[in-house]
């Protein structure tokens, strides 16, 4: 294969191995492309109304659960209401940044006449000093000899041998998918006691006793909801395709209010384009290497 003559040398984010694998499969690198977006990132947003939640005055959209105190009026500091709520403003910020970064990446790829972008790397970063969040996408724009240009260039985290194997197995790369779910926990008195070990609660028999043992129901439900929402969000975008090589990351930040949970799911959306080719039974081998 020959690289098409150009006025300037092309750039790429490919390793030497991946570059060699690209050439062998008819992919021609056109240039290194990128897109990024910085958005405002605030813990409190429109829809957040801590006082209103408990009184039922206003609710955030999406997942919401309320946990009432079984004790009645104890003191001014006592947590009479607890709730789990979906922080849609955080999710929307993240997704809008992702959409903008993707559009910019694709815009650069289109300008080069690319069929797709391979070896995409996503770099999310939080800037606490400016309360902002940045997402940066980069990859290598490629064209495929003899292929019809798709309406939207494809994107994939894969490159080189991994991409070749994917295609050989009968899957076409469609796009990278990234989803997020952000759940806030405002701990109820019982949850607070379970998490900190302090305080007293109404014991099973109706009397007063130490903080109850067992599962911390409110936190478990928030964790489960975060995982469930992010997976459903990504599944909704698949439309009959497959999410391959998914990576589910969940982080929980402890705050005065309670844990703040963020789940992100990323992977490659791929499409079946030919019958799955069965591989031969693999042969077990022992490598005789020095190390």
């Amino acid at each position: 294969m020959t690289i098409a003559p150009r006025n300037a040398a092309w750039s790429s984010g490919l390793s030497t191995n991946d570059f060699a694998a690209c050439l062998s499969s008819g992919l021609q690198p056109l240039g290194f492309v990128q897109g990024c977006s910085v958005v405002n990132w605030s813990f409190y947003g429109i829809g957040y109304n801590a006082m209103g939640f408990g009184l039922g005055v206003s609710r955030p959209s999406g997942y919401f659960e309320q946990y009432l105190c079984p004790h009645g009026i104890v003191s001014a500091e006592h947590r009479r209401y607890g709730m789990n709520y979906q922080k849609s403003w955080i999710e929307e910020s993240y997704l809008s940044a992702l959409r903008s970064a993707t559009e910019r990446l694709l815009h650069e790829a289109r300008k080069l006449g690319a069929h797709g972008v391979i070896g995409v790397i996503d770099r999310p970063s939080y800037h606490s000093e400016t309360s902002s969040f940045e997402i940066s996408l980069s990859g290598t724009a490629v064209t495929i000899e003899g292929a019809v240009a798709p309406a939207v260039p494809f994107t994939t985290f894969l490159a080189g041998q991994k991409l070749n194997k994917l295609v050989e197995a009968g899957f076409a790369p469609v796009e990278i998918l990234i989803g997020i779910a952000s759940i806030g926990v405002m701990a109820s008195c019982i949850t607070e006691y379970q998490l900190t070990g302090g305080g007293f609660s109404l014991a099973a028999g109706g009397g007063w006793g130490a903080a109850p043992g067992g599962e911390i129901e409110q936190v478990v439900e928030a964790q489960t909801a975060a995982r469930s929402i992010v997976r459903q969000r990504v599944r909704d975008q698949l439309g009959g395709d497959i999410l391959h090589g998914a990576s589910l990351m969940v982080r929980s930040n402890e705050t005065q209010e309670g844990p703040q949970i963020e789940a992100t799911l990323r992977g490659n959306r791929v499409r079946h384009f030919k019958e799955f080719t069965q591989i031969d039974p693999p042969s077990p081998v022992v490598h005789l290497s020095d190390r």
């Binding site: 495929i144 000899e145 003899g146 309406a151 494809f154 050989e168 790369p173 469609v174 439309g239 030919k274």
Partner: peptide, 17 residues
Amino acid sequence: IRTDMQAAINALGSPPD
């Protein structure tokens, strides 16, 4: 692999099965 790669990209023009 070259034929497969072309077929894969051409398949993006049609909706998923």
